[in-house]
């Protein structure tokens, strides 16, 4: 009798834990990409988020992407002031309730990732 109750509670707990895990790893987060630099804004920037297709983003534009899970990589390609093509890869995490904006123009500085409250 007690054994059945324990098994039942165990199953329920396992399901809850599984549910939480699925929730966290499955939740899509909003990621904003913008191309607005302080000193220099490349005319066109290209980014690949989490290995998806490459997206072009023009100067001063903002795009909204959805990405699933917690850990992400973004690969950004653009021509800098001297016309040299640069390719930079960065990793970042998304958190619940926080809004993330990635600035392709500022990718080389520390200000590339902006985290705000939702």
């Amino acid at each position: 009798m007690m054994k059945t109750i324990f098994i039942r509670i165990g199953v329920i707990l396992a399901m809850i834990i599984l549910g939480v895990f699925l929730f966290i790893s499955g939740k899509e987060h909003v990621i904003f990409i913008e191309n607005k630099g302080e000193k220099y804004t490349p005319k066109n920037a290209y980014y690949i988020l989490d290995g998806e297709k490459e997206v072009k983003i023009k100067a001063k534009k903002k795009k909204r992407e959805y990405a699933k899970g917690v850990n992400h990589t973004i690969e950004i390609r653009f021509k800098d002031t001297s016309g040299v093509e640069k390719k930079i890869v960065k990793e970042f995490k998304t958190k619940m309730g926080k809004r993330i904006t990635i600035n392709t123009a500022m990718i080389e500085s520390d200000l590339w990732l902006k985290i705000e409250e939702e």
């Binding site: 399901m15 549910g19 699925l22 929730f23 499955g26 939740k27 987060h29 959805y66 699933k68």
Partner: peptide, 13 residues
């Protein structure tokens, strides 16, 4: 906004 297989799994759960 839960996507992919995790979405299916969670929906079933």
């Amino acid at each position: 906004r839960i996507a992919g297989m995790e979405g299916i799994g969670l929906a079933i759960l």
